[in-house]
Nucleic acid binder design. Structure first.
Lengths: 240, 240
DNA sequence: GCAAAATATGCGGGTTCCCGCAAGACGAAG
DNA sequence: CTTCGTCTTGCGGGAACCCGCATATTTTGC
């Protein structure tokens, strides 16, 4: 068995290396990549079937790397090992995992044993191993109470990018009023109406801008999600 | 000599410990704290004069911790050791460093030797040691071409928080029109006017929201800056 | 298949935002 | 003192935003 490690922090990389060696005696070789781009290349060259990957990397982040890797080999098993359980990351990952693929999501704050268990579970047993904290996020992002629809998430991204209502309507093939409906829906869910305060005039917010802030503070959105959204937008703009 | 380490990642913490021992043989004792709050407490208890600190920590980030520490003992020497050179961090740090204090800002990606040199430079020689990459940011944030005035930065934060023009005016003791002037100034500097595109109507942006996005993408703003700004806002709201 | 519920559209209006124009305030040079 | 540059404020208007109300259209559950 061969394992590929994709992680930009040298300390974490060598720690992962040791842990993989310790948890998987059947492992013959361990390769290391220090960012997503190199990770993609090595995965292609070695036909890697077992990958441990950080999500937050400078050159090319884990989600993008995983997407292209999975596009080429959907049965690759990937363990994401990340510092954060931001809803933006969790949503990003579950968006791209192929049907039936085995994968995992473990926090860096997890213990040695949890990590080792996850390594064996995913690479040997083909299970899905998701940390408790991350699991909570998944529930939320898939609906139910505090959850956000795809439609709501989409419009959140659009206003976060700074698009006008009209532009959003064109981009999503909607009427102006529908866009505004979704916005109202979003404002509702994000609790942006609270401090508007009637005639009190105290703490009045610009709903549109406030919604983005609240989403950021709640980690519904984060830098890497914004970055990706911006890239998508650029592509769309160029295509017309 | 005693050194206090404030860093939430266990791997980085023990690496720092070793490096401090290696670089500073005259060091008698090393204390460790795993977040800003504990760091503040230990600094107080041990009257620490030499501190190495991460900026990004869950419980209480490095900038806040440093501020309270420096408030109690302005001659404390602090080496910030961070993953990022975001302008938001750099600006945050240079805002709080006391007159004449010795401090440093080293990136985690720097080599062993750079870190050791910085440790000796700051703790023994009382120099200021700022990494090249970080230095670049400082130039920018202090004025000149691509730089932002305090006024511009302030209004950027206010719209990022989602305040209305009127609220901003009250908060900053300005007239409505002045607020809007500063906004125009900000839009100018952030290059938000480019894709507005005349009658073409293509890619028209909501300037206010777009400005925040651009600032985030350029790392003029980041999560921790937003978090702090939100706390400040809450305080101001309560005070009236 | 049908009723109920959710979602999408159009219209009209009040509010906020964005900004050109012009007039005062203040400090820095000359 | 004058003049220039920068900052501030007021006014007015066009555009965008927020949203209540009423009407299609689609989806869902039975």
């Amino acid at each position: 068995m061969e394992v590929l490690i994709v992680e930009d922090d040298p300390l974490h990389r060598s720690y992962l290396h040791e842990t993989v060696r310790a948890a998987l005696p059947e492992c013959d070789a361990v390769f290391e990549a220090e960012n997503g781009r190199i990770g993609e290349r090595l995965a292609r060259e070695h036909r890697s079937a077992h990958i441990v990957m950080d999500l937050q990397m400078g050159e090319r982040n884990g989600i993008e790397a995983a997407r292209t890797i999975w596009k080429e080999r959907p049965d690759t098993r990937i363990l994401f090992w990340s510092n954060y359980a931001d809803e933006a990351y969790v949503r990003g990952v579950s968006r791209i995992v192929p049907e039936g693929a085995a994968y995992g999501y473990i926090l860096k704050s997890a213990s040695d044993d949890r990590l080792k268990l996850a390594l064996r579970g995913i690479f040997i047993e083909a299970q899905c191993v998701i940390d408790r904290e991350v699991r909570g996020m998944q529930q939320k992002s898939l609906g139910s109470i505090n959850g956000f629809t795809d439609a709501e998430y989409e419009i959140l991204i659009d206003i976060a990018l700074g698009l006008t209502d009209r532009t959003i309507a064109r981009r999503r093939n909607l009427s102006l009023r529908s866009v505004q409906n979704r916005l109202q829906q979003l404002y509702e869910k994000l609790n942006v109406y609270q401090a508007a305060g009637e005639e009190g005039e105290e703490g009045r917010y610009n709903l549109r801008a406030r919604a983005v802030t609240v989403a950021l503070l709640r980690k519904l959105l984060n830098y890497s999600a914004l970055e990706k959204a911006e890239a998508d937008l650029g592509e769309w703009l160029r295509s017309r």
